[in-house]
């Protein structure tokens, strides 16, 4: 689990001071919203850009934050990274998993399809 990209605090959008009850409540809220496929639940903000939020990621985050051994390993990252988290809709390096089907393009790249004689 990447400490910034997959940080459970970012996945659940919780502060590092969140209690076990808040973790449970927030996790269930996200799972219900994902079940309804609400757009606002589909992604979460991290310092590295927006990421896709999936039910599996939410469950893994709930497990991690309820585990006393795992939780402290993510807290400093979340505390230090919270201020850096990208909140805008399209932040980051195109890291939201959406987009091109053949090429992983970053901001600097161009769609090259159709530029050669053999590519329609």
């Amino acid at each position: 689990m990447h400490p910034l990209r997959d940080n459970p605090f970012f996945v659940l959008a919780l502060p590092v001071t969140a209690t076990a009850l808040e973790v449970e409540r927030q996790g269930r809220k996200w799972l219900a919203m994902l079940e309804l496929d609400l757009p606002s639940a589909r992604t979460y903000a991290t310092p590295l850009g927006r990421r896709l939020r999936t039910p599996d990621a939410v469950r893994a985050a709930m497990r991690a934050l309820n585990d006393p051994a795992q939780r402290p390993t993510f807290e400093p990252w979340a505390a230090a990274g919270a201020a850096l988290a990208v909140d805008s809709g399209d932040g980051g390096n195109g890291d939201d998993g959406a987009g091109d089907d053949r090429y992983e393009r970053d901001d600097a790249g161009l769609d090259p399809r159709g530029m050669t004689w053999w590519d329609r």
């Binding site: 689990m1 400490p3 001071t17 402290p72 390993t73 993510f74």
Partner: peptide, 24 residues
């Protein structure tokens, strides 16, 4: 208190996270 991070005893786990991020 909760939120104190590796101060509360998770320093090894935190360092593992740093290693993962650096290795990437």
């Amino acid at each position: 208190p909760v939120g104190a991070g590796p101060i509360a005893g998770g320093a090894d786990g935190f360092a593992d996270g740093v290693v993962v991020a650096l290795a990437e």
